[in-house]
């Protein structure tokens, strides 16, 4: 459904030195699948996700969604940042309704707001302001805000990275439930191997400098049911080995320590 064909994105610093954030990356994301992007810090995961969102443009290569070129951001591709980036002057329900307001469909679709509040498990917090919410609750709002537009794909950039372990597991379950209830395609960037296995159909492992996709691992349904099951543990070992090959320093990276 989303095709990334041979794209490169190079940043130049102030003295003109290039950083090859992505070099000749290709990836095909299937309709309705859950794909995780995992890799060492600075390998270009955010860059790739922003390109798919249309928030940035590649120097070369093609980006397609349903065979149309991706040129600019669109409500078809919802995006959730690591810091929820909620509008602090809007309540939970107003934040979630932004997509409807922006597209002038608020009048007809008002009734969706409470539905999505329920979907992300925030019933009773409709009138709260962001500063009254915990980090996990803010991410729930950010996810609902992206979902209310019924996007073809939901792009999540480490949405759980800043949360404590307990909240993270809770939200992983919520994301899994949302995925099965809405059937939308999800691309998740994460540092956490367990999270990737637990949630995804496929895991794309990236390498740094230049940023590339080195390997795609298929996750069978059985392996992802239970974190203590042998299949899960084997898959985790395999992924970690690949990651060690991908970047020698991965063991030091935030998130990996807890995953091992």
């Amino acid at each position: 459904m989303i095709e990334v064909r041979n794209i490169s994105r190079i940043y130049y610093d102030t003295s003109g030195l290039p950083t090859e954030a992505l070099l000749a990356v290709s990836l095909a994301i299937r309709q309705g699948e859950f794909l995780s992007l995992i890799g060492p810090s600075g390998c270009g995961k955010t860059t790739l996700l922003r390109l798919i969102a249309g928030l940035d443009l590649p120097q070369s290569g093609e980006l397609l969604i349903e065979n149309r070129a991706i040129e600019k951001p669109s409500h078809e591709r919802g995006y959730v940042f690591q810091q929820a980036a909620l509008f602090p002057w809007k309540t939970v329900e107003e934040n979630i309704a932004v997509g409807l307001k922006a597209r002038h469909t608020y009048k007809e679709k008002k009734s969706l707001v409470p539905e999505y509040i329920r979907l992300v498990g925030l019933t009773g917090f409709a009138k709260s302001y962001p500063h009254e919410l915990s980090g996990g609750m803010m991410q729930r709002v950010a996810i609902a805000r992206a979902l209310i537009n019924e996007p073809k794909a939901l792009l999540l950039d480490e949405p759980l990275g800043a949360l404590d372990a307990f909240t993270r597991i809770e939200l992983q379950n919520t994301i899994r439930r949302i995925w099965s209830e809405t059937g939308t395609t999800i691309v998740l960037v994460t540092h956490d191997v367990d999270e990737a296995i637990y949630l995804s159909d496929r895991i794309a492992i990236m390498t740094a400098r230049p940023g590339r996709i080195s390997e795609i691992i298929d996750v069978e349904i059985n392996s992802r049911r239970d974190r203590n099951h042998d299949d899960f543990i084997n898959l985790r070992r395999r992924a970690l080995e690949k990651l060690h090959l991908a970047g020698e320093v991965y063991a030091n990276v935030r998130g990996a320590g807890e995953a091992i």
Partner: peptide
């Protein structure tokens, strides 16, 4: 914050919306 504009764009916001609502 740039993130507010970017989030709004991925929600289908126009320039006008970015000015008046963000």
């Amino acid at each position: 914050p740039k993130a507010y504009f970017e989030v709004s764009r991925t929600l289908g916001a126009s320039e006008r919306f970015l000015l008046f609502h963000v």
